[in-house]
């Protein structure tokens, strides 16, 4: 027997990747019953680990997920299409704008400066919050994809 006992790392390596072991380690093992017993224990463990039953779900994954996808597809169909939404927005904004076009100028001249500032500030904060939310969401998606 030569040298000190093999470390736990070397014992594991002997089982998993014997060619990577040094000749000194192998020579020690050949003459050391203690290390041989440790190797035997690891061998038994590795065998037991590879024979573990594969975990399975207690439900039908495909049925659940495909059902969920079908539901969300139905919801998408039920939602008005983008052009219908655009047409509605146009109708709601363009018709009053056309009807009240002659008074449009006074909207900005008759309004007080403070009120105008408050409206613009509120709109600015809202837009800023939406942009920050979008950036955060984008980063989350990129992390999931690229991590």
């Amino acid at each position: 027997m030569s040298g000190a006992h093999l470390s736990e790392e070397e014992l594991q390596q002997y089982i998993l990747d014997r060619p990577a072991c040094t000749p000194e380690d192998i020579a020690h093992l050949d003459g050391c019953p203690d290390c041989q017993a440790q190797v035997a224990a690891y061998g038994l463990l590795m065998e037991g680990l590879s024979q573990q039953p594969a975990p399975v779900f207690g439900f039908d994954v495909s049925a659940i997920v495909m059902g969920q996808l079908a539901e969300s597809a139905e919801r998408r169909v039920e939602r008005p299409s983008w052009w219908a939404t655009a047409a509605l927005i146009l109708l709601v904004t363009a018709v009053p704008a056309w009807l009240f076009r002659k008074s449009a100028y006074y909207v900005f001249t008759d309004i007080s400066a403070v009120f105008l500032y408050l409206i613009l500030a509120a709109a600015g904060v809202f837009v800023l919050l939406r942009v920050l939310h979008l950036i955060k969401r984008y980063q989350q998606i990129i992390n999931i994809i690229n991590k």
């Binding site: 017993a37 224990a41 038994l44 037991g48």
Partner: peptide, 22 residues
């Protein structure tokens, strides 16, 4: 651990080992 390994080597049934390991 050495003695334990020696004692158990022959007596452990694979099935038993799988269950215990699990």
């Amino acid at each position: 651990t050495v003695r334990a390994a020696e004692e158990t080597d022959d007596s452990i049934l694979k099935k038993e080992l799988t269950g215990i390991l699990q």
